[in-house]
Design a protein around this nucleic acid. Structure first.
Lengths: 102, 102
DNA sequence: GGTTTAAGCAACCATTTAGTTGCATATGTA
DNA sequence: TACATATGCAACTAAATGGTTGCTTAAACC
């Protein structure tokens, strides 16, 4: 369901995490927690929300967990918005046609 | 803040409302409530969330309230995702450069 | 004027959410 | 082996959320 992705992105802290991942790399749970103003377990919960929505992946490596952004989720999100906008445009054009014909 | 828009769209019912608005028109609160499986006051609350996030506008007309989609919000949402994707691409390309040089 | 219809407002309730603390577990490392 | 570090798990709390019902207000219409 699309709503889940939006919901995952719909929190300032989670969005901050995603932003950070989009231009940083080699993040683990603890390194990501830095400067987040929240406990590790708190951060972990937010990461889980993002992971469940497939916005990112949590890959255990040794004793740590790598946090990896999944651009496909953002892409599907973007496409969904585009489809909405297109329907909107279609509707507006249809209205315009009616007006011009009438 | 961008998170607010995502949050507004991050609920199945609210997303349903937005979808409906994107290809329908002339909606008031009560007509929108139809087939939503929820009370008018419940629907109104969700509409308020969307209105606060500027996804739509509630325009009082006589004794009813017109519900009008605001495509600009969707557009800003889309642009935000694009900017994230671009940062991601930039980062990947930078990584690629390092690998190729090394 | 009286009735119907669209909506607002407030109180209330159940569930989810965001965060915490405390403790257990497992991996690296000296 | 012993110790430090990265994480997991569970219980708990406060606040936000999604929804309800009941009542009031105001515009439209006969």
């Amino acid at each position: 369901m699309e709503a889940q992705i939006f919901k995952a992105l719909g929190d300032p802290l989670r969005l901050k995490i995603v932003k950070r991942l989009s231009h940083g790399s080699d993040y683990t749970i603890t390194t990501l927690t830095k400067d987040l103003g929240i406990s590790r377990q708190g951060a972990r919960k937010q990461l889980q929300v993002l992971a469940t929505a497939k916005v990112l992946r949590l890959k255990p490596v040794g004793r740590e967990v790598n946090v990896i952004l999944n651009p496909a989720a953002l892409e599907s999100c973007r496409r969904f918005i585009i489809s909405l906008e297109q329907q909107w445009d279609t509707r507006l054009n249809a209205l315009k046609d009616v007006v011009e014909r009438g």
